[in-house]
Write a protein that binds this DNA or RNA. Structure first.
Length: 152
DNA sequence: GCCAACGTTGGC
DNA sequence: GCCAACGTTGGC
């Protein structure tokens, strides 16, 4: 099993939006080939992922999700009304993939970006690297455990 | 295949 | 709103 960190702007889709579903929901709109390849080749059903809020007053990790099922074509790429519409994506060979996720736990508090930066053992964490902009990032088991200890 | 221009991300 | 970083596009 692998570990991940998945970013979302809470104004667009927050951990509370996922919590309200009370069932798996689609993680859609990823438009980056590295992320597409993660979804296609590396991420597996049962993997765990941190839910990370970005571009907001308190960026940080807000909960844990589990990956459900397999990757499948992201329907928003074919929807002209969607902000994620990609008119160049061929119907018979879709460019972009989505995953389904279910909420495992919403944390009782935000584990903030500044707290992550200050935590021993997280020095190499991808999300802390300067210039790192991928919305889905791998997390090592040691990093996963270190973050879990922060929330008890 | 190169690479400059452009667009996006995301913390601050 | 700024801007550094870096992915994508497209002319050549």
């Amino acid at each position: 099993m692998k570990y991940w960190l998945m970013k979302s702007e809470p104004a667009t889709y927050s951990v509370d939006d996922l919590a309200k579903r009370r069932k798996p929901d689609i993680w859609e709109g990823c438009r980056n080939y590295t992320v597409r390849n993660f979804f296609r080749d590396i991420m597996k059903a049962g993997d765990l992922a941190f839910f990370y809020h970005s571009s907001c007053p308190e960026p940080g990790i807000v909960g844990v999700m589990r990956i459900v099922g397999d990757a499948y074509p992201d329907p928003t790429q074919f929807d002209p009304k969607s902000p994620y519409h990609d008119p160049k994506s061929p119907r018979d060979n879709p460019r972009w993939l989505a995953r389904d996720v279910e909420l495992v736990a919403k944390y009782p508090r935000v584990v903030t970006l500044s707290e992550l930066r200050a935590t021993a053992g997280l020095e190499g964490m991808e999300v802390l690297k300067r210039g790192q902009r991928l919305s889905v990032l791998p997390v090592t088991e040691a990093e996963w455990q270190a973050v879990a200890r922060l929330v008890g």
